[in-house]
Design a protein around this nucleic acid. Sequence first.
DNA 1: TCTATTTATCACATAATCATGTTGAATAGA
DNA 2: TCTATTCAACATGATTATGTGATAAATAGA
Lengths: 145, 145
Amino acid sequence: MRLSQTAEYALRAALHMAEHDGGTAIPVGDIAKSLGVPRNYLSKILHQLARAGVLVSTRGPGGGFRLRDSPDQLTLAEVVSPVDPIADERRCLLGREECSNINPCAAHGRWGAIAESMRAFFFETTLADLATRGGKESRRKQAIP
Amino acid sequence: MRLSQTAEYALRAALHMAEHDGGTAIPVGDIAKSLGVPRNYLSKILHQLARAGVLVSTRGPGGGFRLRDSPDQLTLAEVVSPVDPIADERRCLLGREECSNINPCAAHGRWGAIAESMRAFFFETTLADLATRGGKESRRKQAIP
DNA sequence: TCTATTTATCACATAATCATGTTGAATAGA
DNA sequence: TCTATTCAACATGATTATGTGATAAATAGA
């Protein structure tokens, strides 16, 4: 009942880039060392994010990965979804086919509210919101007060 | 970001038993057929629940599984935890060591509220609350309005 | 051009999850 | 006691998640 390891790495790496944002690319090795996560594995994850358009990769000396957009324009959902199917369609906690929005099961309403708040958190929160570096912590919308 | 397949099976099976409660044991085969899940796999899951004290198993003709307690005395957490570590300690969404309740990261507070509501849902909701069969839908506490 | 740096990609290794099949043990009832 | 029923236990396989290592490709700069 939590983020996959992969998604967690992706999020922490993106956050690290947001916090050390300078428009300059950061090598995988540096990020891996900072976060204390396996280098090669992180490399693959960042590559996935690059293919998804969340990051930009540059090869060769001075290369590395950087965020495609500014941190206040990237939601957690955008970072996580390429590696972990977040907020999927079936809102029903149980896998019941007979349960839908039209004919909801008892869990539907009560769990639905929680699922919705989770969805909102991932889709409304930006990297800038979570970055610890002081300064311009602009945020988009605020679903959770 | 959802229950494991195993936990979902456990929950659905327990719910099925709550809805067909008569103090009588139900064979795995019947439950598996009703839920449309693999029989042998469900058997192992129910066995785990029995060892955890959530279910009682009876062998031989007329045997099967039944709930140890009445549905309004069994929380979702009790059913799910034997097969899926739910609501674990680390409240921090990211795996940051430097993040604790004393020195929280930016995600901490906002995500913490959601994590807490999830925890409450699993620990305060009983099988009776989710059982669709009409009648005595007694509930313990109501954390989520 | 040559070299150092860095991502991209491929091939595995390992463990967990998900699932199936088979056999053994217990038990109710004839 | 015999038999059908049912859980218990074990072995095994498939798939996915997680992680490692080696090599190829790109590129900046001397």
